[in-house]
């Protein structure tokens, strides 16, 4: 059995996965038109709030980690030279 050519690793299937994933993302936001999110503080019932909040908090956290990493990252053998 040749495992090197797994269907998950083919560019074509990865493209399909991206398309499928994007469709799911769009659906979760569009579903809000039908279901409606009952927020607690007003702002969180806005259309697509959770999507935007999740996305941008993650971007912020990755960038923050990047900045902190620039300061705190050291080679693996830092403690036992």
């Amino acid at each position: 059995m040749d495992d090197n050519d797994h269907w998950l690793t083919r560019p074509a299937s990865i493209r399909k996965l991206w398309i499928g994933f994007s469709a799911v993302l769009a659906m979760t936001v569009l579903a809000q038109l039908v279901i409606g999110i009952k927020g607690y503080f007003g702002v969180d019932s806005m259309f697509g709030f959770a999507a935007a909040f999740g996305f941008f908090s993650c971007v912020a956290m990755v960038l923050l980690a990047k900045a902190i990493g620039a300061l705190l990252k050291r080679p693996e053998d830092y403690y036992h030279d």
């Binding site: 993302l25 279901i35 999740g54 996305f55």
Partner: peptide, 19 residues
């Protein structure tokens, strides 16, 4: 509740997109 599930799905799946 449908509202809560949808909220978390949006929150988490768009975090996935960010990743």
């Amino acid at each position: 509740t449908p509202s809560k599930v949808l909220f978390y799905l949006q929150l988490l799946l768009f975090s996935g997109l960010a990743f």
